[in-house]
Structures are given as C-alpha cells and as structure tokens.
Amino acid sequence: MTAVTIIGAGDIAAAVADLATKAAVKVQVLARDVEKARTLTAPLGAKAGRVGDAITGEIVVLAVPYPAVAEVLARYADQLTERILIDVTNPIDFATFDNLVVPGESSAAQIIQDTALQARVVKAFNANLGATIATGQVGSLTTTVLVAGDDADAKRAVIDLATAGGLEAVDAGSLKRARELEALAFLQITLAAAKKTPWTGGFALVR
C-alpha cells in the first residue's frame, strides 16, 4: 500500500497515523510544531517534520483546523497534483458553536477541491471522533469510516487504508455528500461538547 503524509498533530492526526501504521503503511507527520510531530511519531516509528517540508506520501491527510486549510493548500499547491487528499476537517463556527462556516450548498471538501484542482479530494474520518478511530470501536461496534468523493480509485484507496487498519468503511457517494458528512460531524461534536454523549463514543453504523 502507498505511503501517507499527515498534516497536523492533533487527536485525529494521531489516530490516523496509528491506523496507517497498523495498515503497514509508511507514515510522515508534518506539523507547525515539529516537537509535537516527533512526539506523535516516536512510538510509531514514523517520520516527523515541519509544515513546509516536502510531502512524501501519495495520500495526504489534511488534519488541521479548518481556518488553517487555505494556508496549507497555498503552501503545497505545487505538490498536490494527482495526490489523494483526505479532508478530515469540520468547518464549525467555534465562536458560536451553532453553525457551519461554509455556504449551505457547498462543503469544506468541495471548497478544498475547487482550490486544489489537481488533487483527488476525498472526505473521510471527519464524522468519527478521534477516540473511536484510535480504539476501532463505537460502543460494541467496529468504527465505520464514511467516505465521499468523485474519484472512484481515490475512494477505494481510502477505504482500503481504513479496512487494512482494522476499521469498517463505506462508500457514501460523491463529493456532494461531504455536506451531509460535515453536518453529521457537527451534530456529533456539539452533543459531545454539551456532555450529552462521551468523546469516546459517537454515531455508529449498523449493517
């Protein structure tokens, strides 16, 4: 399987890095704070670097807060051509915690695709809380990753990554479905923030 570059060093980045390692994939983690990247990668035997370093993975995981996306895309504009770009962001208005900050007819993933035209954008992992990716469980069920995108081969690569790492994965349709995935994540996050559900839980898919 191909190599993975993860941009970011938060909970989702750490969980996906661990998942990719379980899938026997080479992992590179790039963060603004290289020490955070090193702390994350040390137990995994993965490579750490600073945002701005060259991307080595054919799959790139965009695991930064949504407000940082534009800067990252601009920095790596010439390195994303034909790469699979996994968007795990959720464009929540954290000032009010009551809305998404993208137009109602669009999504963060679509805006990213419109910006990085030569990348193959796939929405995935955003509707999973970090703990459920890390443990592989939502309650008694195996964590399911919902995957949306317009490139069938790119989606298959992401599904293969998730399943090789021990999770379930479902093709949720075209990139248009990213809007619903972001809304689903928004609801899940707000429920957890209000302590109505645990950060270690979340929505599960029964098949």
Rank of each mutant, 00 (worst) to 15 (best):
A95D: 15
A37V: 03
L30K: 08
A42Q: 10
E58K: 14
I86E: 00
K22I: 10
T56Q: 07
L30N: 07
K47D: 11
Y76V: 09
T41L: 05
D87S: 11
V69C: 09
T41S: 12
A54M: 00
K36P: 09
A54S: 11
E35C: 07
G52Y: 04
T21N: 14
Q79P: 10
K22E: 08
L40W: 03
V61D: 11
D53I: 00
L80R: 07
V64G: 05
V60W: 01
N99L: 08
T21Q: 09
A37K: 06
R83A: 03
L73N: 12
D78V: 10
A77D: 15
R32K: 13
I55G: 03
A23E: 10
A95E: 14
V29T: 11
T81R: 09
D98K: 14
V64Q: 07
I84V: 09
Y76I: 00
T56V: 04
L100Q: 15
V101M: 14
T56A: 06
A37M: 10
P67F: 09
Q79N: 11
V101C: 13
G52R: 00
D93V: 13
T41H: 11
G45R: 06
R50G: 02
K26M: 00
T89G: 11
G45C: 02
A70Q: 11
G45Q: 11
P65W: 12
D33A: 15
N99V: 08
K26C: 02
E71L: 06
A24W: 12
T89N: 06
I86K: 00
G45A: 05
L80T: 13
D98G: 13
A46G: 10
D93R: 14
T39M: 12
Y66F: 14
Y66L: 08
N99T: 13
D53P: 00
E71C: 15
V29I: 09
V60D: 03
V69K: 06
A46L: 09
A37T: 10
A48Q: 02
K26H: 03
V61L: 10
E58M: 03
L73P: 01
T96M: 13
R83Q: 12
T89C: 08
K22C: 13
F94W: 12
T56F: 01
F97K: 14
P67N: 15
R38V: 02
I92K: 11
V27A: 02
A46R: 01
G52E: 04
A31V: 12
L85C: 07
L100F: 13
V61E: 06
Q28L: 06
L85F: 04
D78M: 14
P67E: 11
G45L: 02
A54C: 03
P91H: 08
P91V: 07
I55D: 02
L100D: 14
F94P: 15
T41D: 07
I84N: 05
R83N: 05
T81V: 05
V27W: 00
A68N: 08
T56N: 00
T39E: 12
A74T: 15
A70I: 11
I92S: 15
N99P: 05
D53N: 00
A68Y: 15
A70P: 05
A31M: 10
T41F: 01
I84S: 00
V72W: 06
K47R: 09
Y66P: 01
T21G: 12
K26D: 03
I59T: 14
V51R: 03
Y76R: 02
I86F: 07
G52S: 00
Y66T: 14
V25L: 10
E58Q: 12
D98E: 15
E58V: 01
K36R: 10
A42M: 02
V61W: 02
Y66M: 11
V51K: 00
V88F: 09
